[in-house]
Design a protein around this nucleic acid. Sequence first.
RNA 1: GGGUCGGUGGCAGAGUGGUCAAAUGCAUCAGACUGUAAAUCUGACGCCGCAAGGCUUCGGGGGUUCGACUCCCUCCCGGCCCA
Length: 325
Amino acid sequence: MDRIIVILGPTSSGKSEVAIALAQKFDGEIISADSRQIYRGMDVGTGKIIKDKSYPSLPLGEMSRTRDREGKTFYSEGIPHYAIDIISPKTEYNSAKFKKYADKIIRDILGRGKIPIICGGTGFWIKALVDNVVYPEVAPDWKLREKLGKKSTEELFKTLQKLDPQRAKNIDAKNPVRLIRAIEICKTLGSVPKPIQGSTLGILKVEPWEFLQIGIKIPKEKLNERIELRLQKRFSAGMISEVKKLHLKDKISWKRLESFGLGYKFIPQYLKKEITTKEELFEKIYQGEKDYAKRQMTWFAKDKRIIWLNDYRKIEKNVKNFLKT
RNA sequence: GGGUCGGUGGCAGAGUGGUCAAAUGCAUCAGACUGUAAAUCUGACGCCGCAAGGCUUCGGGGGUUCGACUCCCUCCCGGCCCA
C-alpha cells in the first residue's frame, strides 16, 4: 500500500518547516491542507510568505516561494507545494473540492515515485483525505441558503425535523450553518444519508492509502508566544495593506473578506474605522488566533491515530520507520 | 480641610430592601462538527457536591430591618470640584 505522511498541528506550531525538511530528506512533495492558503493573494495574512526560521531543531533557512515555469506550483526551499494559490478568493471552495483535488495530486506524486506529504491545520480537510470521507453529492444551493439564512434557528430546526427526523435527532440544533446544509441535502436527496457502519462521517470501507499522522506538539504558553511573534512579523510585513489591496484592487467585498476570519475579519473593521487603534486590532487578531488554535486542538484530540512529537529528529525517525516497513 | 461621586465575582460593568451566587461583555476552561471549518455552534465558570442541596460573598467594622449588594453610622481607599 502506498504511504502518505501527514504533518498537522495548531497555527504557528512550525508545521511547514517540518514538512519541508521531511520532503528534502525523503524525496517528498507537499500538499497544503490549509483552507485559507489555497486562495491567491491572501499571503501575509495566512502566513504564506512570512520568513520564519524559528523552529529550533531544524537545519532550515528562511522560507521563500517561487512559481515554476507554468506558474502553477509553488516551490519553497526547492520543494513543490500543492493546493496553495490555486483559486481566487472570489471563488467558493470547500473540503469536498479539496479532497477531489488532493486525491488527484496524491496519485500524481505517487506515480512519480515520490512521497506525498500533507501539511496543514485544517483538520476537517485532513480528515476528508485520511478517512476517505464521502460527502453527500449535493452542491451548495446559494439561493436556498440565502432564503434559509433569514430564518431563525428554531424555524430551521423545525424544518429539518419534518424533512429528516433522523438527522434532526443528532444535529446541533442551535447551529444555523449545520441546519442549513442538512436541509439543503434533504431538498435534493430526500434525507441526509446515514453514516456508514456506525461511523459519523460515512467512511469508505477501503482506504486506498496508508497514512502516518504526526502532530507538532507544543505547550500552550510557547504556542501563544509564537503566535504573538508571528503576528508582529505579519503586521510589519504588510498584513494591513494586503487586505486593503484585496478590497480595492481585487474587488473582494468586505463581507467576503470578513468571512475568512481572523486578520481578514478584523482588518476590514479597522479600515472601516470600526476598530480605532492598531493596538486594539492586534489584540483582537491575537486573541482570535489563540481561540483558533484551541479549536484546532479540540478537533485533533479526537483522532487517536495522531502521533504527537516535538522533536524533529524523532519525527524523522518515525517517518523513516513508517516508510521502511 | 470642605464638597461630591464612587469602591460589586480574574477584568470591565449592571443591580440600588426580598424574585441575587448577583445581568451583560471580556478573559479562562471544556466540548461539538455528515461539501462554509481561520468558518459555524454549545456548555461550565464563588466554594463543596454526580445531583438534590448546602456553605461563604458585593472595600472594613458596626447598626436599622422578618430580610440588605441595596438604608443609616463610622473607618479605609480612589476620581473629580472648591479651598
